[in-house]
């Protein structure tokens, strides 16, 4: 069977947020909900029906992929508003270019490529408008010693450090790190999304993890001092 024709109920792999990414939004009509939830109706079939002039199949596609699109965009961009804009724009572009869809290829790879391109553009635009360094963020964070072992505060601090490190990483490393480590996609899936070879995707992942570890170690050392 053609892999592109298989229903794409993909797992998120190592991420702990799988249900949050795959469940359907509330308030769907019964027809749309049935289409979106029916694993036997592939993404390619929904595209074909949309191109035939039906509206519900596309709404079902949105329902299937809007969460994943939003979260990928969010983990790359780091801001809810920007991620929402990216997800919306990705679906509009998808809709406009549906007639160029190659049925021999997997739908989600094609769609995620649109999302990633928009997200990386948004990240670069946001960086040029308000660049903040890790050091600045460290100054704004509460001192760990003053917190008296308050766990939620420590977790918030740690999360803040993670986002600061992600902001510090180059967009190409951040994209691979997000897709592999958070969204659980393999390097073979990531490579066509970023229009790079499999070897390049693996190298970027390797370097991205190393850089993330280096920044993390540095920040941990500073905050413990």
């Amino acid at each position: 069977m053609n892999p592109a024709m298989e229903p794409n109920r993909r797992s998120v792999g190592s991420s702990s947020a799988e249900p949050a990414m795959t469940s359907l939004p509330a308030g769907l009509s019964s027809v749309v909900h049935a289409l979106a939830a029916d694993a036997s109706v592939s993404d390619a079939e929904l595209v074909r029906r949309t191109l035939a002039g039906q509206e519900d199949p596309f709404v079902a596609l949105v329902a299937r992929y809007q969460r994943r699109a939003f979260w990928i965009a969010f983990h790359v961009v780091g801001r809810v508003e920007d991620a929402r804009d990216v997800a919306q724009e990705a679906f509009v572009r998808l809709f406009r270019s549906l007639d160029r869809y190659d049925y021999a290829r997997s739908f989600y790879t094609w769609f995620y490529r649109i999302v990633m391109n928009l997200a990386i553009d948004a990240l670069r635009k946001a960086r040029s408008s308000h660049a903040a360094s890790i050091e600045e963020l460290l100054g704004a964070l509460p001192d760990a010693r003053e917190q008296g072992g308050d766990e939620p505060l420590q977790r918030d601090e740690e999360n803040g450090q993670v986002w600061a490190i992600l902001d510090k990483l180059d967009a190409k490393f951040r994209a691979v790190l997000v897709l592999r480590d958070i969204h659980g996609l393999s390097c073979r899936e990531i490579a066509p999304m970023l229009k790079v070879t499999h070897a390049t995707a693996r190298w970027r992942l390797h370097r991205g993890r190393q850089m993330f570890r280096d920044h993390w170690e540095r920040l941990q050392g500073r905050s413990e001092r």
């Binding site: 947020a17 949050a20 809810v80 977790r155």
Partner: peptide
């Protein structure tokens, strides 16, 4: 890596169902 996954998961808790309905 654990911190990265933890930060990603905690960010997901900040968006509720109504946000996704409105986004849809």
């Amino acid at each position: 890596r654990g911190a990265l996954l933890g930060a990603a998961a905690s960010a997901m808790r900040g968006i509720d169902e109504a946000d996704f309905t409105a986004m849809h």
